[in-house]
Design a protein around this nucleic acid. Sequence first.
DNA 1: CAGTGGTCTAGACCACAGC
DNA 2: CTGTGGTCTAGACCACTGG
Lengths: 256, 256
Amino acid sequence: MPDARIVPDGRAQQIAAGLRAAITAGRLAPGTRLPSVRQLQVQHHVARETASRALGLLVADGLAMARPGSGTYVRPRAERLPLSPDRYSRVSRQEAASPGPPAPNDRPPRAAGFRGARTAPAETHLAAVFALPVGAPVYERTALLTHQGAPACLLITHYRPEHLAGTALAAALENNGEREHAFEVLAAHGLAPAAVTEQLLTRSPTDAERTLLQLAGAEPVMEVCRIARGHNGHALEHARLVYAGHRFLWSYSHRL
Amino acid sequence: MPDARIVPDGRAQQIAAGLRAAITAGRLAPGTRLPSVRQLQVQHHVARETASRALGLLVADGLAMARPGSGTYVRPRAERLPLSPDRYSRVSRQEAASPGPPAPNDRPPRAAGFRGARTAPAETHLAAVFALPVGAPVYERTALLTHQGAPACLLITHYRPEHLAGTALAAALENNGEREHAFEVLAAHGLAPAAVTEQLLTRSPTDAERTLLQLAGAEPVMEVCRIARGHNGHALEHARLVYAGHRFLWSYSHRL
DNA sequence: CAGTGGTCTAGACCACAGC
DNA sequence: CTGTGGTCTAGACCACTGG
């Protein structure tokens, strides 16, 4: 029961602590190359394995990234981009007039990387959302969204097939992805969402997510399940988004 | 640039993969003791260190927990408790009539463990929220909330001192914590919140959080900054909550 | 090519759990 | 007391980077 483990000691932890302090204090700027395994080995009079473990601890913390064959580098710390439901209703007048400081990088993630679309059978959860029988066909789109040039979010979206199959809306969604939010495309085709519910959870990434989102060490993902409904309450869109958790900030307001 | 690392091989990874499959497939029930380091060593003809690393990978994944001197055990997977802003306005009629299945464990976390209260000087962010000069005194409460007997959430709450200092409200908040949400206590004293904004972010826990919340491996925390405002728009409460991220699910609805 | 991180080995010592 | 996980050592091989 006494499972304490307050603060583990050990040579590897000590070496890591020294570097960790230097990084968080800013003495080692992002992008700087850390001492190599062999340098740490002689500096601290430890075995190679121990020095390697010390750097491994920093990588696991997300403070550093290892590039085999090159070195271990201080990881740049990205600012968190706020995401709020306002972005669903706000018209994208981003590039309006002034190129001033108020809008440096507050553009939501846009599609890039792979994209795909297909018709797939609905599993139980999805079928319930759309009030369809299990196994009924649904229209599915997948995308990898990027922000500031880096992968930011995996996206799987589902639609009712009768809304999309062979319609202009489907083509519009295909050719979009770079410019405007899917909600704007839906609205332009007479399917404006009237309400959105979002469920958020945080967890460790899978191996696939870790590589696709370029996550380091123990950085978590934020998994968001979003359901958009029309004025009649029927589901228009079901989206499952897996964000690189360290790059965003989710903001919600509620009147009591 | 080609930083792929699709799926790392290595003996330790292979051994871990076998156990991981057995766990996720349910062949190894939660609570089961995994093979010991020395058993794995002879079973797979590897060095002790390698077998130890294999178990370490499972612990890092949150699939297992190591109890030194005893063994390594399959970690119980907790259900996620949904949290939605509804809980702020819902009257706590939990123990009303039927003890049926609809309300088994959907009670929000309640205070337990340490609690504290003091007056502290406001730092810049807090001062801005309360429209006070930096360094002005604010009333601060800390608590460790538990759910189903396990630590669930660290809580730091701030209030304007004139609302609390030496009032019945302060005493009520002190003596509460077990029964009702702080908002109900505030409302009972004429300070009913009219709007709430919440900012959520996910990150790796600090060492202190990892021990206080009994987090295993790479399990992330969800950090929530909540600001409750009265009808005049002035901040009534500022709360910073750090949840054990794997045990909850945050739910929000929004009308467009 | 020399230097990098990643991994494995065989052996050792420690602190702790539980009988 | 035996078995447990945790850690360190000294040495080795590998695949890779980058001049």
